[in-house]
């Protein structure tokens, strides 16, 4: 495997291999000295056209724990046509000698373009492209859920596990990546949200859908609910009328948490809008995996860097 642009590039076996490596990395992260020499002498560039301190720090820590040199490159980006072009930036990085470029971009397909353009020779890791994909987020979600469900997770998938993804499916790269990856790992995936934010094409690929969270809870026997962050600009664009109405129909509150029961895990990719898509009662409940998701981000990104940058020929 050379690049990680889309979770669709991962076979079930490749995905499980990354999750298993993530498990090993998480053991490293529990040690006093959290460092491996694996990527000594390699250069990883974090190329961020869009602000995301959380994701950047997670990749940065992951690369440093593998002893790679890390360069952070915050680019202005060509939101319309002005600004630094992706090509010019990529060629600059190539001149620096990047072994891997971790790219975050506001345009869907930017990582795909970088990987296929010939502008860079190194590996390309998609850290979120527009409303398209966020593969490492899906991997860390799958890893977190797998570890929560199986006491010995090694080698396992998510067969038979049922997950509802709730919220703005239409504009969510997290939802797109999770839909494909979770299904690849054997899970059943249900999509829940207002009709304005549930595209037919994605619904067709899911195992079921509902316009009501209450209905979803009573219909699908859910092992996990994954709440998506709501962007307030969706409200101004008329996708739903108000925050209050959204929270009332699609928010995960204490009542719904009780309906889900004690066996269902609560997930959120962060950052959370507390009181909108998720209440404190749900976010901080004992079934919440939210903090584990953040912690596992580093392990999973270490695993991805390891798979792409060391011994790739044998893969």
């Amino acid at each position: 495997m050379k690049h990680l642009v889309s979770v669709a590039d991962l076979t079930r076996e490749a995905a499980i291999a990354i999750l298993d490596t993530s498990l090993e990395m998480s053991e490293v992260n529990d040690r006093d000295i959290k460092k491996l020499p694996t990527l000594r002498g390699k250069t990883v560039v974090n190329l961020f056209f869009e602000d995301s301190t959380r994701t950047r720090i997670s990749f940065e820590v992951a690369a440093k724990r593998l002893s790679a040199d890390v360069i952070n490159f915050a680019a202005k980006g060509s939101s319309v046509s002005k600004g630094e072009s992706l090509k010019d930036t990529a060629q600059t990085l190539e001149a620096i000698g990047a072994d891997a470029v971790v790219i975050r971009h506001h345009a869907s397909g930017a990582a795909h373009m970088l990987a296929n353009s010939g502008w860079v020779k190194g590996s390309v890791i998609n850290a979120g492209d527009g409303t398209h994909e966020h593969p490492t987020q899906a991997l860390l979600d799958a890893f977190t859920l797998r570890s929560a469900i199986h006491t010995d997770a090694r080698g396992k998938g998510l067969d038979g596990v049922s997950v509802a993804i709730v919220g703005d499916i239409a504009h969510s790269r997290v939802a797109r990546s999770n839909l494909v990856l979770l299904k690849q790992l054997g899970a059943k995936v249900y999509l829940v949200g207002p009709p304005t934010l549930l595209p037919n094409a994605l619904v067709k690929r899911a195992d079921g859908f509902s316009y009501s969270l209450d209905e979803a809870i009573s219909t699908f026997k859910l092992d996990a609910v994954m709440m998506l962050r709501v962007q307030l600009e969706r409200m101004t664009a008329g996708f739903f009328p108000s925050e209050r109405e959204y929270a009332r129909i699609w928010g995960l509150n204490a009542d719904r948490l009780a309906l889900l029961g004690s066996e269902t895990f609560v997930m959120h990719p962060g950052p959370m809008n507390r009181g909108l898509e998720i209440d404190a009662a749900a976010a901080d409940s004992k079934n919440s995996l939210v903090l584990k998701q953040v912690a596992n981000g580093v392990s999973v990104r270490m695993a991805v860097l390891y798979h792409l940058l060391s011994g790739g020929e044998n893969e």
């Binding site: 060509s78 939101s79 319309v80 046509s81 072009s85 992706l86 090509k87 971009h105 506001h106 345009a107 869907s108 397909g109 930017a110 373009m113 527009g130």
Partner: peptide, 12 residues
Amino acid sequence: VEAKECEWAAAA
């Protein structure tokens, strides 16, 4: 070339 050698959303 510049108007097409870029990310999709920025292209003409």
